[in-house]
Design a binder for these strands. Sequence first.
DNA 1: GCTTAATGTTTACAAACGTAGTCGTTTTAT
DNA 2: ATAAAACGACTACGTTTGTAAACATTAAGC
Lengths: 129, 129
Amino acid sequence: MAQRKQGPGDRISEAEHSVMEALWEESPLAAAEVCERVCTANDWSIATVKTLLSRLVAKGAVGTEPDGRKFLYRPLVERDEYIGGESRRLVDRLFGGRAAPLFAHLAESEALTEDDLEEIEALLREMRK
Amino acid sequence: MAQRKQGPGDRISEAEHSVMEALWEESPLAAAEVCERVCTANDWSIATVKTLLSRLVAKGAVGTEPDGRKFLYRPLVERDEYIGGESRRLVDRLFGGRAAPLFAHLAESEALTEDDLEEIEALLREMRK
DNA sequence: GCTTAATGTTTACAAACGTAGTCGTTTTAT
DNA sequence: ATAAAACGACTACGTTTGTAAACATTAAGC
């Protein structure tokens, strides 16, 4: 019965991602605690959170540790790893793997604030050092 | 009855996106011509392409014009519009709408080539002008 | 002790997706 | 003229996702 290790093939869905964010913010958490942080925002019931947590565990993205008769859930993949993968996927899919066109597009579509620009300039200077 | 106009709710799926890329590259195209450009790369049959085209038409992302007994397909949404939306979605979902953290992340994860850096610097200078 | 509240597990079910086959019709080649 | 090829429409079917209810077990309050 091949215990499912999470490969890159096991994508985290959008709803699941909301749960992950809660766990990245603070963990470990019980299902009810996760619900406290995401249910109202997403208009979900506790049942939904339980399903999402189960699926995340099945995908190997979340681990559990028993705590009395309940479980505490904690992320097994790091947020950085996740957003890195997602970002790369997008850049690959839409911009042929080149980040510059993405940047150009964000710039052009006003998606960059003055703060963003300054921050990016600072990053560039930093990298040039 | 209710002819489905494409709202932002009608997302283009990943497989559908491949078809869109072909049409953005050149259009209008017949189904067979689309297949010529995407079938081998994705290991699809012509039937798959036909389904994807139908769904895209249903979503209002692609329009048709009759050409003899067949149809010619042409994109109704522009590539810029699409990639802009997708980019914004990602930035919103993963970086709270701020582009700088995305940039930082790409930089940190080696996803930026020297060419990218130079191009981005050039863009910044351009914007500063 | 017995009822109730909390929890994980199982089951449900519609919509979206990936992938493709079948059917009916029309065009084209022989 | 007839058979084969091409084409869109319809149907199919397993998987993933979103969303949740039902169920079984157990802890806790009365």
